[in-house]
Design a protein around this nucleic acid. Structure first.
Length: 490
RNA sequence: CGGGGCGUAGCACAGCCCGGUUAGUGUGCCUGCUUUGGGAGCAGGAGGUCGCAGGUUCGAAUCCUGCCGCCCCGACCA
């Protein structure tokens, strides 16, 4: 139906790229790996931000802002951290340009070299913990529960709009606690909050678990994650939460006096989700007709399209349409009435369908006669002619139903594409087929590495609520106490 | 960073091998009329540093070199 639009089964990544472009979500910048988030795409991100921001504030967190530039020396203070990020840091070395000697254009002024080079933050642990040293003296100063909305830069080799870009937007929380237990609880609490957000707002079912050593955040003791399954059978890490132990406190010498008067290092957590969630949202629900948005994140939940032959008709229909719009808005539903005369109804139908607007209403002369309205829902593409009476209540219910239906569909997809296997032949076949593969693993990095080499699959996570069950590693045959989740991942 | 493909109007492409009038086609855009329940029809019109920079040549979209960017496959990585 959508003209010139690649189907998922033909070429999944082409489908994704075209969808992002044609639904007006984002485009490439002239700078390699960077993206321009267009108004419609940004509106969806803003809905996500608003929901997450409220959830974080409701759990006691406050927003703050730390600088984009980090002195190079900070990054090197935590050994694992620097090792993990050094390879992908953009570095500022100069602070001035000048006219080129030949008069052609501008060049970096060699006279303006910085004494200490600055890194553009790939994440903010170091600059934040440098501040926390000054903020924290006593147990009375704890906990600190700070979040920031920011951009970060990681110099990636291969980028894809939203999924992996050189610069991306995110929130990063950085908390400081008096005890290890508290810091672990915080990291876990946020992971559940992320899962709650993914499932109830994005309608995306996620697995909650712990990362293996090889996938752990650089500088963390433990990394927790939520993992989603995309429609091509690949897994996508949608959010991470880290228990940082005392690693950063030690690196930045952040100590506090306990109630008992002892001096101890502070315990930490950090956690984040990024504009990658946009990629997850797109890939989880959309179809061969374009974007499908969960009502809770759709910038416009309902669009009303008038169908008319002349101005008199339009005026009458408009009156009715605006009345319906108001009744919907009274229920907190966002509505766009598109009475533009520059596009025909059929064009508008196709447009809003491609952009994933959950519900479309059409009102024409026949509806005016019969006191009806046509309702079309994006998730199932079903159309219905209904009476105008009680339309607001009906649509309110329908939006909830669509939100549920999208989630259930994604959940069913995940269930249909989760396989349990007990030997390596079955494992390879299952990975080839795609989806989550649940299997025993002996817990060693070596085995994980071998499996990755042979199948391209990695351990996505060790499930939080995974049943303890004795078994043998699918690769090495060594004893295993629990199944873990494997998949090919983005 | 390695292998492959590509870069020509807003978008999608032809032309390039074999250099030679004014660089085409579809779509989109503008104007007018007719239309309007699933991407309207006709007529007229505007729109181009042929990715960028050099070179070869009387002459370059076309041949050569370098660079930039995008896509696919690897390697690497949240």
């Amino acid at each position: 139906m959508a003209k010139g639009f690649t189907k998922r089964e033909e070429n999944y990544s082409e489908w994704y790229n075209e969808l992002v472009a044609k639904a007006d979500l984002a485009e490439h910048s002239d700078v390699r790996g960077c993206m321009i988030i267009k108004p419609y795409g940004y509106a969806i991100w803003e809905k996500m931000q608003a929901a997450l921001d409220k959830m974080l504030k409701d759990t006691g967190h406050s927003n703050a802002y730390f600088p984009l530039f980090i002195p190079k020396s900070y990054l090197s203070k935590e050994a694992a951290h620097v090792k993990g990020f050094a390879k992908e840091c953009a570095v500022v070395t100069h602070y001035r340009l000048k006219r080129a000697d030949n008069g052609q254009g501008i060049v970096v002024d060699p006279e303006a070299k910085l004494e200490e080079e600055l890194i553009i933050r790939p994440t903010s642990e170091t600059i934040i913990w440098n501040s926390y040293r000054k903020w924290i003296q006593s147990y009375r100063d704890l906990p600190i529960l700070v979040n920031q909305w920011a951009n970060v830069v990681r110099w990636e080799m291969r980028t894809r709009l939203f999924l992996r870009t050189t610069e991306f937007l995110w929130q990063e929380g950085h908390t400081a606690h008096a005890t290890e237990v508290e810091a672990v609880e915080e990291a876990e609490k946020i992971l559940h909050l992320y899962a709650d957000f993914a499932e109830n707002w994005m309608a995306l079912p996620v697995l909650k678990g712990i990362k293996t050593e090889s996938e752990r955040f650089a500088g963390a003791i433990e990394t927790y994650c939520i993992e989603g399954l995309m429609q091509d059978g690949k897994a996508l890490q949608c959010g991470t939460s880290h228990f940082l132990g005392q690693n950063f406190a030690k690196a930045f010498d952040v100590k506090f006096a306990t109630k008992e008067g002892r001096e101890e290092y502070v315990w930490a957590s950090s956690w984040g989700v990024s504009t990658r969630l946009m990629g997850a949202l797109i890939m989880a629900h959309s179809d061969d007709n374009g974007l499908v948005l969960p009502p809770k994140l759709a910038p416009q939940q309902v669009v009303i399209v008038p169908i008319y032959k002349n101005e008199d008709q339009l005026n009458q229909i408009s009156e009715k349409a605006i009345e319906i719009k108001k009744s919907l808005e009274a229920k907190g539903i966002s509505v766009k009435y598109d009475d533009r005369d520059t596009h025909k109804p059929g064009w508008k139908f196709a447009e809003y369908e491609f952009k994933g607007v959950p519900v479309r209403l059409a009102i024409g002369p026949r509806d005016m006669e019969n006191n009806t309205v046509e309702i079309a829902r994006r998730d199932t593409l079903e159309k219905d002619i209904v009476n105008q009476d009680g339309i607001a209540e009906r649509i309110e219910k329908l939006l909830e139903e669509i939100q549920q239906n999208i989630f259930q569909k994604a959940l069913k997809y995940r269930e249909d594409n989760t396989q349990h296997v007990d030997n390596f032949d079955d494992f390879k076949n299952a990975i080839e087929k795609g989806g989550f593969v649940v299997a025993h693993w002996d817990g060693t990095t070596k085995t994980e590495e071998k499996i990755k080499q042979e199948t391209k699959a990695t351990v996505r996570c060790i499930l939080f609520n995974g049943n303890q069950e004795a078994g043998k590693c699918v690769y090495s045959g060594n004893p295993s106490s629990q199944r873990v989740v494997f998949a090919k991942a983005y």
